[in-house]
Simulated scan of single mutants.
Amino acid sequence: MMKKNLQTSALSVALTVASMTASATGFVQLPATGVVIDGGKSAYITCNTTGEFGSNPNGSTPPTFSPNGGANNTCALKSIDPPVAGYTQTASVVRDIVMNNAYTLNQPITVGTVVDRVWRKGVSCIYGAKIRLNNVDYDRRAISPGVQYFEVNDILRANFLKKAPVSVAYVYTTRGPGQSDDVVYRAGLTNTSVVNFPGDPAQPLISVAPINRKWVDFTTDISFQDDDGSSVRDSAWLLVKSTCSEQTPAETDGALKFRQMGQEEQPLIEVRVKAFDPSAQ
């Protein structure tokens, strides 16, 4: 979606946060038993819910840190080098995001890339991912005219079950006119992604998206060209902080998952990629 990220007067609009748990700049802890909300509990905290989870053609409002503390910066950090002072990068790999299913006629198609990194400070690690989607048609079937671009609404990283506490943050960057990341709308300990339409609650109940302490799910909205008429091809840096050992980070197949959830009625598609695995440290 072409997030025209409102850089003018809209920057002064404060983010309405549905949960007091997620009301701080920087890393925010994901409660292992969920977040208390109206009607029950949710696995999700909210970060930046401007832009209606990407469905608003005017885009989301990016985080700021000044003046007077800034606005729209829940879960946001200023820098990625390093994301937190005192942490040292210990691993970094660029990986292809390869789709291979019935839509691709069972042929591998590289729909994007992800930078996968780990930073460490003693027995604390930060696992980071940043995605860029390609200008490529993934649906090669004859019944699908035109170009179908892979859209990523949810990005999940695995294996935090024994790594409590787990906290999340993101780093948003702007590289020039029309070149910016998408924000993170929410994050939670769940393996059940839920598509968000205008008017839907920002934090689905655990009866809809159950708590799963193995997985951290980030909700965002990126596509080389979105069906709603606008586009952001880059995610923010998506960061998860947890305990770890001092071993070299290990890699596991499928430790990152990318999901197209059908916000514009696209088919539900999941692509899995090898990634650094917290459970192996």
Score class of each variant (00 low, 15 high):
N100D: 14
V114L: 02
R120G: 08
P82F: 05
V98Q: 01
G112L: 05
I126M: 08
G69Y: 08
N72P: 07
Y103C: 14
N72M: 01
N48K: 06
S79R: 05
K121P: 01
G54H: 00
S55G: 08
S66H: 11
S92E: 08
A76Q: 04
P82W: 01
T113L: 10
P57G: 08
V98M: 01
D81V: 05
T64H: 05
D116L: 03
V114H: 04
E52Y: 09
S79L: 06
T64S: 12
Y103S: 15
V114M: 08
G112R: 05
T74K: 03
G122Y: 12
N73K: 03
K121C: 11
R117K: 15
L77T: 10
A91P: 09
T49G: 10
G51W: 00
T46Q: 11
R117V: 12
A85K: 15
P57L: 10
T104W: 00
T90R: 12
G86L: 00
P108Q: 12
G70H: 12
N100M: 12
D116P: 06
T50C: 06
S124D: 11
P63E: 02
C75P: 11
R95L: 12
P62L: 06
Y127L: 08
T90W: 09
K78Y: 13
D116M: 02
K78R: 15
C75A: 10
A102I: 02
G112V: 06
M99K: 13
V84P: 03
S92N: 08
N73A: 07
G51N: 04
S124K: 03
T113S: 15
N72F: 02
R117N: 15
T113Y: 11
T61N: 14
R120M: 03
P63R: 05
N106Q: 10
I80Y: 09
Y127T: 09
I126H: 02
G86R: 01
N56I: 02
V123A: 11
I80L: 05
V123M: 12
I45W: 01
N48M: 08
T61S: 10
Y87L: 01
K78N: 14
R120D: 02
K78M: 15
A91S: 13
V93E: 14
P83K: 00
F65K: 04
I109P: 03
A85S: 15
L105M: 11
P108D: 14
I80N: 10
